[in-house]
Design a protein around this nucleic acid. Structure first.
Length: 321
DNA sequence: CTCCAGGGATGAT
DNA sequence: ATCATCCATGGA
């Protein structure tokens, strides 16, 4: 299969995929294998160009258009003129958010030493547009787990309950639908390493599969209302809700506060202050980091995690600027 | 406010 | 080799 080339200026694929926002992409050769929705995808970066191929997708618009016209579909009766599904380039561009004005976003970050360092370190990192259910389910599994664990859980869920795809000779599994997971049992989910999170994922899958919670219909809701709806789902608190808003609902201002971000805020922005509550941290973040706060948060998170400042008892030479 | 709920990677010893 | 710590937390 021929590789399709896509312009990808101001983009860093590896940083984007390894920044703790998505957990299923695996390094293969010079690039990565994964899924975008139900399609298996291979993608690699060469400078400012993304080379990609997709299985179950479209190589050319015309081919899929013909395919569409062969079978009578209900879409034809709707009168919509957008019958042709988007091209591979369009799907990939949208998924990796290559249309985000990254320069403007980064320029809107506050100018302080911590933020400057994070902005410089994370150049090219973009917040991608993930499928809603996949994102929600994965972050329900993320509670009190490390990134490597979440990857294992995601892989186990896909292998057990997802649909097998193939791309360039590699096996890839799509993320199981809410209906599929709703038909499993808590015990089956525990076999994927979910622990106590199994019940939450199962219950949320049932609510979503039944239509009682319609994620797509929540698109027009304002941030506050959307957050409230998400938090009513089992296993979803403020942190997970903000992650789903940021990574799947394009709410760029949503500011998830996890262990790492809390450390950064307390140690860098609330230096030597007692009695700092979580609410105070959230209020500060919402006001200080601005309309693209979610992006700022992602940069701070990735920078903190990569420059590793996990508690080490023996740090005799603590260097500060 | 506190406490607890898998389990595996990671790091100290 | 074993042992302690940590974890993109929610719920009680």
């Amino acid at each position: 299969m021929k590789l399709i080339q896509i312009a990808a200026p101001d983009f860093d694929l590896e940083k984007t995929l390894n920044s703790g926002q998505v957990f299923h992409w695996e390094k293969v050769g010079a690039g990565f294998c994964g899924t975008i929705g139900e399609s298996a995808v291979y993608v690699e970066q060469l400078g400012n160009v993304l080379q990609t191929k997709m299985e179950g997708g479209v190589v050319r618009r015309r081919a899929q258009h013909q395919l569409f016209r062969k079978a009578p579909t209900t879409a034809a009766t709707t009168g919509s003129r957008e019958l042709a599904p988007p091209s591979v380039a369009r799907v990939v561009t949208r998924y990796f958010a290559l249309d985000h004005p990254l320069e403007d976003i980064c320029s809107s970050f506050p100018r302080d030493p911590i933020m400057n360092a994070a902005r410089d370190f994370c150049r090219g990192l973009r917040i991608i547009r993930q499928p809603k259910w996949e994102c929600l389910a994965t972050f329900i599994c993320s509670s009190m787990k490390q990134v490597t664990h979440i990857r294992q859980i995601s892989r186990a869920l896909r292998q057990r309950f997802g649909e097998k795809k193939e791309i360039g000779g590699d096996e890839i599994f799509s993320f199981p639908s809410p209906g599929r997971l709703a038909r499993t049992s808590e015990n089956e989910l525990r076999k994927c390493g979910l622990g106590y999170r199994a019940r939450n994922l199962l219950e949320t899958a049932k609510v979503v599969a039944s239509g009682q919670a319609d994620l797509d219909s929540w698109n027009p809701l304002p941030d506050r209302k959307l957050r409230k709806q998400l938090c009513e789902l089992p296993g979803v608190g403020m942190k997970v809700a903000n992650c789903v808003m940021l990574f799947a609902f394009e709410r760029i201002a949503a500011f998830p506060i996890d262990v790492w971000i809390e450390r950064v805020l307390r140690e860098k922005y609330f230096v030597r202050k007692r009695k700092v509550t979580g609410q105070m941290l959230a209020d500060f973040a919402a006001n200080y980091f601005g309309v693209h706060g979610g992006y700022a948060q992602q940069y701070l998170f990735h920078h903190a995690r990569m420059t590793g400042k996990r508690k080490s008892p023996s740090r005799s030479l603590d260097q500060s600027h």
